[in-house]
């Protein structure tokens, strides 16, 4: 079990593995994140993997590769992937790759609330 990775924290909630990623995702950081997340997936075999992107300050196409790789792995193991609360910058690159067409993306509650008020 991964106990310490500065780039994410996690919690296990019933059949879901929730991973909150922090800071910058680029080719450099994606290497260690990928290895540690995969170790947890193989150990927990979650029905749902949730990647919380609300505290990602930067992500380039290495992050897209990271997400697609986890999507493929979780699907292979019979689970699903959800992306939660991507920031504006992350949403832009996810949209460029058409990610919302294949992976469920849950927007931040704050944004929904703001829209309702308007």
């Amino acid at each position: 079990m991964v106990k310490d990775n500065k780039l994410f924290s996690y919690r296990i909630n019933n059949d879901a593995l929730e991973i909150k990623m922090v800071g910058e995702i680029d080719h450099h950081s994606a290497v260690s994140v990928r290895a540690d997340i995969d170790a947890m997936i193989f150990e927990q075999r979650p029905k749902r993997l949730i990647l919380d992107l609300s505290e990602i300050s930067f992500m380039d196409s290495s992050g897209l590769g990271l997400i697609m790789g986890r999507y493929s792995l979780v699907r292979e193991l019979g689970g699903t992937l959800l992306l939660r609360s991507p920031t504006a910058a992350v949403t832009k690159i996810l949209s460029l790759a058409g990610m919302e067409r294949i992976i469920k993306i849950e927007k931040a509650f704050e944004e929904d609330d703001a829209n309702e008020e308007n």
């Binding site: 994606a30 990928r34 380039d60 196409s61 290495s62 897209l64 590769g65 990271l66 697609m68 790789g69 690159i93 460029l96 790759a97």
Partner: peptide, 14 residues
């Protein structure tokens, strides 16, 4: 093998 997305130049251009 390295899980590259193949979107590098597309991101630069966009």
């Amino acid at each position: 093998a390295g899980e590259r997305s193949g979107m590098g130049f597309t991101v630069m251009e966009s």
